[in-house]
């Protein structure tokens, strides 16, 4: 009983951040670097949440929310990944790989759930067409509020189910983990770094002169890494 209740704050956070992705207010509180940090703070380890959030943010650079395109839902997913990573201590080998995996799977399912949510709203809007065509303000407001409520519930349900499934699963995986913490983190970060760097290139390479800025930045970044 306590276990399910313990999921409630994270579920609420996932619901609110799931809503932020598209419906309201799109202030990007749902970006992994924020969402995972907030999840980490909720479980008492904001820095670990941030570390997971940075890794997920690199993945998220690849999937920008262009128009009606299909993209993963990072808000609820980052709460799941951030919380699973943050509740483990520094010595837990495999924490990064497993939490990032859980977050990516949740993000994928979240993306699918957003599509289904939109289809559902489309059907609902179709049923209200007559009232909308008559200029009913009640119909306009009701459709809007229903969309917002469904999206909030979608994000909450997704977060709850993902945590309910992945929390015990990750415990089993941690118990059987054989690689070192460094290797686990290294593999996750190398994947995230590759995706993030390719995503940046995709965004900036069409802008005149941007590749030189990128190269110049790399020189500065590499020098800072070596120097510190």
């Amino acid at each position: 009983m306590t276990h399910w209740l313990a999921l409630l704050p994270l579920t609420l956070l996932g619901a609110v951040l799931g809503l932020d992705v598209v419906s309201f207010p799109q202030a990007m509180v749902s970006r992994p670097i924020v969402a995972a940090t907030l999840a980490g703070a909720l479980v008492g380890a904001p820095l670990r949440g941030l570390i997971c959030g940075v890794t997920l943010e690199l993945f998220a650079l690849e999937t920008l929310p262009f128009g009606a395109s299909r993209y993963p839902e990072w808000g609820s997913a980052s709460v799941v990944g951030g919380a699973i990573f943050a509740v483990q201590d520094e010595a837990t080998a495999g924490a990064m790989a497993i939490s990032v995996f859980c977050a990516l799977v949740t993000a994928s399912i979240g993306g699918w759930s957003m599509i289904e949510h939109r289809k559902l709203l489309g059907r609902y809007a179709g049923g209200m067409r007559e009232y909308l065509a008559r200029g009913s303000s009640t119909a306009v407001t009701r459709l809007q509020l229903r969309g917002l409520t469904f999206d909030l519930l979608r994000g909450g349900l997704l977060t709850f189910v993902a945590l309910a499934v992945f929390s015990p699963l990750s415990t089993v995986l941690f118990a059987g983990w054989t690689f070192s913490s460094e290797v686990s983190r290294g593999v996750s970060v190398a994947l995230a770094g590759a995706v993030g760097a390719a995503a940046v290139w995709k965004v900036v390479h069409t802008t005149k002169g941007a590749r030189w800025y990128l190269l110049g930045g790399f020189v500065i970044g590499a020098a800072l890494v070596v120097a510190t």
């Binding site: 890794t55 900036v204 990128l214 790399f218």
Partner: peptide
């Protein structure tokens, strides 16, 4: 262009930080 410069600086530092 600003994003490109920031990317060059941020990516190595972020990877090192994680």
């Amino acid at each position: 262009r600003a994003a490109a410069l920031l990317a060059g600086i941020a990516l190595p530092l972020a990877v090192r930080g994680v």
